[in-house]
Nucleic acid binder design. Structure first.
Lengths: 158, 158
DNA sequence: TATAATTTCGAATTTTCTTCGGAAGCGGTA
DNA sequence: TACCGCTTCCGAAGAAAATTCGAAATTATA
């Protein structure tokens, strides 16, 4: 067995759709919604977790409430060869770095960073980014206003 | 009262830290962790929801498992005046658009899009983006590999 | 310090979780 | 069709958790 495909049927997709919208929905409510026995639904959810279709249950917290008002995208160039992604791995270790993408085109990496304010971003760049030798240049774009920010997938009917 | 500040104490922050890591943690476990009565913890959680500190409980689903393998950032310019953000609102309505940020600098918006493949991105641009008249130009950057992608906030101890 | 407001607790009830044996459904095969 | 193996589903039952609420404790405020 090589590919071990993940097959998701209509019921699985419904579970994912509901859980994506509310991770704290009770298994009992899920069962009612799907018109199935709670035990059957539970088994499916466990399987989805096992198969890593469900990656994590998380709580979205208002950044403003925690005083994290600065969001920035940083386009980075790196001197490392194409085979390695050590630069990315180093960046990924930094908690304020929310996203690291290897992108096509001129810039090597697209990095998304969230901090309290511009001062803390500055600090982050001085103390952390500068330690990563392979970074040769950065171009920072500050976000003035976020209109939408979600990670919801479009889940097909079946 | 104008500002109606949101005050979060040490206990609130602990709750948020735990819930951010696992939204399906039971209230009982939460209470054990914090060494408090379940009823007291429950009341705090409800208050955090009310105050919109907790925005949503969500399930992170593997995009690959659902065949959503294409991720792209699109930098857009818009002809609308600075006061309005109708373009952004229109973009936000599109489910495949995960993020819309108004950014400083040359480009007006930074948009993050997730679709099945490049063909569906093309389709999206032809059918949806082109309908938004105010968009004057787009520059699309395709993600080759995502090393990190989370929305976890750095929550202070106290 | 007195008083008001908020937070916490504990107990009791309802609801949910979890487990497991067995039934039902679904291909594949002779 | 009859049989088999596999998966999924169900229902029941005990354990655990959620929820509610009155009272105590704590904290803030006058």
């Amino acid at each position: 067995m090589i590919g071990s495909e993940i097959v998701l049927d209509k019921t699985d997709l419904s579970i994912l759709r509901l859980m994506q919208e509310n991770a704290r929905m009770t298994n009992a409510d899920l069962a009612r919604e799907l018109e199935m026995a709670p035990s059957a639904v539970l088994e499916r959810v466990k399987k989805l977790e096992q198969k890593q279709v469900i990656v994590k249950y998380t709580t979205r917290i208002s950044p403003v409430a925690l005083g994290q008002t600065l969001l920035a995208f940083i386009a980075m160039k790196s001197s490392e060869g194409m085979g390695s992604n050590n630069t990315a791995k180093e960046l990924a270790k930094i908690p304020e770095v929310q996203e690291v993408h290897h992108v096509a085109g001129e810039d090597c990496y697209m990095v998304k960073v969230r901090t309290a304010d511009s001062a803390s971003l500055m600090e982050l760049m001085r103390n952390k980014f500068s330690k990563i030798q392979s970074i040769t240049s950065t171009r920072t774009t500050i976000v003035l206003e976020t209109v939408k920010e979600e990670q919801l997938l479009v889940i097909p009917e079946k």
